[in-house]
Design a protein around this nucleic acid. Structure first.
Length: 547
RNA sequence: AGGGCUAUAGCCAAGCGGUAAGGCAUCGGAUUUUGAUUCCGUGACUCGCAGGUUCGAAUCCUGCUAGCCCUGCCA
């Protein structure tokens, strides 16, 4: 987290501190409460909170709620929960709507100085006069209204004298600017819509480009970080700051948003996946939303470490999702108990093991973390192993079980396969093996070596469990709007198998490494006592290349 | 095309005139009661391209090319 985690925004802040421009810095995370947070927001959250912290400053959570048509309290609650879950505590909780009165006054002040005017052209007419990317715009007839008239009209807008769309308040800047954002941008529009916070107090609402710089200035934000698509708005941001009667002069800095392979990141596309039932909701474990990642089993630390390691720049990027997975494995490696689960069971009969007998074997919970201790696991005449751990006709370099081969059963004994039974469809139903008492784990037996070690669950004490295996949500890199054509129809596979006897009463979000399978997390919605449901967060890496 | 921005290995990304960090991925090899972990090793005679300045350039200058963003009363 030190010198090689530097980036251009840190350079800017460092210079600002050294030049004495600021004594300390203040940042903010400013979501609009109109949807759920995703890992792209996590990048911004980590950046804002940790940057401020590194320079001894603080970070506000401010909801940018200037458009009541799209916003809802449901989202503010979900967003607060996600940020808290990530482990950040905002210095202040604010809403843009807290400042509506102040913003109104700033607008009035602009009008008084001839810097804003009330427009009565329709939306279409305004668009006509705006010009194009290559042609300048034309000035509106309303542009030269008197200050008095503008004041009165704006007051009437507020008091509800006009219908939606009938008037707007526009900044008077430059209709021929090559930057379209400066061609007399709209500052206020009329919307007779109840607001989640201010109810029916207002029927005019400020636009983002007017509201945001004011919010920043009011809160004393020093560095206002946003994504690249706002770059063209910076001159307007600076214009508002320069004209406003506020002491503070925040600085907008833009960085590239996060793109991840095998998924989509825009609210619109995520909503489409939900609405068209490709997934089970915003918190579906396949979704890149914070709530989806949480339900899947990702940890706050893994997400934050990922966000730190991808860096911050202005270059368009597409980060490999395997990098995210790497940090989950790294986080859980020493934390998660390592237990055994058989996802697709086939029964093994140990023909030379006494009937009716069960022995309990000691098994370390995490060989890389001895503090996690030891548990006892059963072994008897009947056990389950993984169906794919046996082959009648194995290819070369198959280290698992096949006729006349010997393998180690983890924590138990070597077993030797002598025979097997198949049903009428040719599907293996039972394996017949013998065990060698001398090979007991922990005995130090080393007279023979085996190539493979298989995990198992003892049949008599096995706890039935459901396993949900997730694959990539999107097959290839979908371009533009055709991403629905690339949705992986096999992104979810459900398995029913067994876990160890001490796993019956796991609780939501408990995390385990199942030997040779990967990291799993208890599903918070569908798991119940005695009937656990496990979500596979990520697989273990594997260099097994057969098939 | 008018404006804004970006371009360093397969993917992120440091580097700020002195001779290419780091992470992910990949591929080798050692260890291994997880085909995991760990450990070692692995790739840019070169920084989008072409010129120029300089003793010296990924870093400065010029030109070009490619990609992204901007014509909401969305944010």
């Amino acid at each position: 987290m030190s010198e090689h985690h530097t980036h251009f925004i840190k350079h800017i802040v460092t210079e600002d501190m050294e030049s004495g421009a600021y004594d300390s810095i203040t940042t903010r995370f400013p979501p609009e409460p109109n949807g759920y947070l995703h890992i792209g927001h996590a990048k911004s959250i980590v950046l804002n909170f940790e940057l401020a912290d590194e320079f001894g400053g603080t970070t506000n959570l401010r909801f940018d709620d200037t458009n009541p048509l799209k916003e809802d309290k449901e989202y503010v609650d979900a967003i607060k929960e996600d940020i808290e879950w990530l482990g950040y505590e905002p210095e202040n909780l604010r809403f843009a709507s807290n400042y509506f009165e102040e913003m109104y006054n700033q607008a009035v002040s602009l009008i008084k100085r001839g810097l804003a005017y009330v427009e009565d052209l329709s939306q279409d007419e305004v668009r006509e006069l705006r010009g194009t990317l290559t042609e300048p715009g034309k000035e509106s007839p309303a542009r030269n209204r008197s200050v008095e008239e503008n004041l009165e009209l704006f007051e009437q807008m507020r008091s509800g004298a006009f219908a939606d769309g009938e008037k707007t308040l526009r900044a008077k800047i430059d209709m021929s600017s090559p930057n379209i954002n400066l061609r007399d941008p709209v500052l206020y529009r009329i919307s007779h819509t109840d607001h989640h916070n201010t109810g029916s107090d207002w029927c005019i609402y400020p636009m983002y480009s007017f509201a945001h710089p004011l919010e920043d200035a009011i809160e004393g934000v020093t560095h206002s970080l946003c994504t690249l698509e706002f770059e063209d708005q910076r001159p307007l941001y600076d214009w508002v700051i320069a004209k406003a009667d506020l002491a503070s002069e925040p600085k907008q800095i833009e960085f590239a948003r996060l793109n991840l392979t095998n998924t989509v990141m825009s609210k619109r596309k995520l909503k489409q996946l939900v609405d068209e039932a490709f997934v089970d909701g915003w918190d579906d474990p396949r979704m890149p939303t914070i709530s989806g990642l949480r339900r899947r089993g990702f940890t706050p630390e893994s997400i934050k470490q990922f966000c730190r390691e991808i860096g911050v720049s202005k270059a368009d990027n597409l980060v490999d999702v395997r990098m995210l997975e790497h940090f989950l494995r790294e986080d859980l490696k020493l934390k998660a108990p390592r237990t055994m689960a058989v996802l697709d069971p086939v029964k093994v009969i140990i023909t030379n093991y006494p009937e009716g007998e069960t022995e309990w074997l000691p098994a370390e919970v995490n060989p890389e973390n001895e503090e996690m201790g030891t548990r006892q696991i059963p072994f008897s005449r009947e056990i389950y192993i993984e169906r794919e751990d046996f082959m009648e006709d194995p290819p070369k370099k198959y280290f698992r079980l096949f006729p006349n081969n010997e393998v180690r059963i983890k924590h138990a004994y070597f077993i030797h396969c002598h025979d097997f039974k198949k049903d009428e469809n040719g599907r293996v139903t039972e394996l017949y093996c013998t065990y060698d008492p001398e090979t007991k784990s922990g005995s130090g037996f080393d007279a023979r070596k085996v190539k493979g070690t298989l995990h198992y669950v003892e049949a008599g004490h096995a706890v039935p469990a459901e396993f949900r295996l997730y694959e990539r949500l999107i097959d290839d890199e979908a371009e533009g709007d055709n991403f629905l054509d690339f949705v992986n129809s096999e992104s979810l596979t459900v398995k029913h198998g067994f876990v160890e006897p001490n796993m019956a009463d796991v609780t939501a979000y408990d995390k385990f490494q199942f030997f040779r399978h990967g990291y799993f997390s208890v599903d918070p919605k569908d798991s119940s006592p005695g009937a656990p449901v496990f979500n596979r967060v990520v697989e273990l890496k594997s260099s097994f290349k057969l098939k």
